[in-house]
Amino acid sequence: MEEGLSEQETLVKKCRSGNPLAQHILYDRYAVSMYNVSLRILGNTGEAEDVLQNSFIQAFKKIDGLESNEMFGSWLKRIVVNHSIDALRKRKIKFISLDANDIEIEVWEEPPSFFDEKPKKEVIKKIQNGIKQLPEGYKTVINLYLFEGYDHSEISEILGISESTSRSQYIRAKKKLRKILNNNSKVNF
């Protein structure tokens, strides 16, 4: 490690020089999490593996464009998300805009009882399986919003849709997911 630089900064600096060992270390550090990001968006292991490889290739080719060496992880995640979205576009996924009148807002007087309990592995697994059953457009928006932490303005930019379309897709995805979970479970979500 170079004096005054973090390990991350040192590795990225070495990658800028084309150091294959530094590239390998960064790949090992980020591959699993970036694969999971892509898999959540695409729902297909083969496509997610392809996206992962292409994302790392692009990242190492364009690493000179990275402004801050410490931001490598978030920069790489953005590349992975963009490549995943491109793969979805190749499938011709449609994002449907809805009028405000089409959206039902659900308000709870009190949170449902399942919020009081810590999630169990089986409940989490049921939710993950439910998300897999959603139409691609819904699945993409709900994954970007809930799991990747993007807001609707960022999602609209990434997907090339309006913010209202992102919001309506998210609301409809939650409604459909709740219906899927209630049909497959004794617990009402």
Results as ranks from 00 to 15, higher is better:
Asn36Gln: 06
Ile96Gly: 09
Ile103Lys: 11
Val80Ile: 03
Glu47Tyr: 07
Thr45Met: 02
Glu67Ser: 10
Val51Asn: 09
Asp28Glu: 13
Ala31Tyr: 09
Asp86Thr: 12
Ser17Asp: 10
Tyr27Arg: 08
Asn19Gln: 03
Glu70Trp: 07
Ile25Asn: 09
Asp28Trp: 11
Ile105Arg: 09
Ser17Leu: 02
Lys14Met: 11
Val81Arg: 03
Asn69Trp: 02
Met34Ala: 03
Arg89Phe: 08
Asn36Pro: 12
Pro20Asp: 00
Gly65Glu: 12
Val51Arg: 02
Lys13Tyr: 10
Leu42Trp: 07
Leu76Ala: 01
Ile63Tyr: 12
Leu76Met: 06
Asp86Cys: 10
Arg29Met: 08
Lys13Arg: 11
Ala31Pro: 15
Arg40Thr: 00
Ile25Glu: 08
Ile85Trp: 03
Tyr27Gln: 07
Ser33Cys: 07
Ala22Cys: 13
Asp102Leu: 02
Asp64Lys: 13
Ile96Arg: 15
Ser84Gln: 04
Asn36Glu: 00
Leu98Arg: 13
Arg29Val: 00
Val37His: 01
Cys15Phe: 14
Arg89Pro: 15
Lys94Arg: 14
Ile85Asn: 11
Ala59Tyr: 04
Asn82Ser: 10
Ile93Leu: 02
Leu66Met: 04
Asn36Leu: 00
Leu26Pro: 15
His83Phe: 03
Glu67Asn: 12
Cys15Tyr: 14
Asn19Cys: 13
Val32Gly: 03
Asn69Gly: 04
Asp64Trp: 06
Val81Tyr: 05
Val81Met: 01
Cys15Gly: 13
His24Gln: 11
Leu26Glu: 07
Ile103Tyr: 11
Phe56Asp: 10
Gly65Pro: 15
Gly18Ser: 04
Ala87Tyr: 08
Ile105Trp: 11
Leu66Gly: 05
Val81Cys: 00
Ile79Met: 06
Ser17Ala: 08
Val107Pro: 15
Met34Thr: 05
Leu42Ala: 10
Ser74Asn: 09
Phe72Gln: 06
Asp64Ala: 14
Arg16Met: 05
Gly73Pro: 14
Glu104Ile: 01
Lys94Met: 04
Val51Tyr: 06
Pro20Ile: 00
Ser17His: 10
Ser38Tyr: 06
Ser68Trp: 15
Ser84His: 05
Ile25Trp: 12
Ser33Gly: 10
Leu76Asn: 11
Asn54Phe: 04
Met71Asp: 07
Asp99Met: 04
Leu52Thr: 01
Leu39Tyr: 13
Glu70Thr: 12
Lys13Asn: 14
Phe95Tyr: 07
Leu88Met: 04
Arg40Phe: 02
Gln23Ser: 06
Lys92Ala: 01
Glu49Ile: 06
Leu26Trp: 10
Ser38Ile: 01
Gly46Glu: 03
Gly46Ser: 08
Val51Met: 00
Lys61Val: 07
Asp102His: 11
Lys94Val: 00
Ser17Glu: 07
Asp64Thr: 04
Leu88Pro: 15
Val12Thr: 07
Leu76Ile: 05
Ile85His: 07
Gly18Phe: 04
Val37Asn: 01
Ser33Glu: 02
Ile96Ala: 07
Asn101Pro: 14
Leu39Pro: 14
Ser38Thr: 01
Phe95Leu: 03
Gln58Lys: 13
Val51Ile: 06
Glu49Arg: 02
Lys62Gly: 14
Phe60Asn: 05
Lys94Leu: 02
Ala87Asn: 13
Phe72Thr: 00
Lys61His: 14
Asp28Met: 08
Ser38Gly: 13
Leu66Trp: 09
Asp50Arg: 06
Leu66Asp: 02
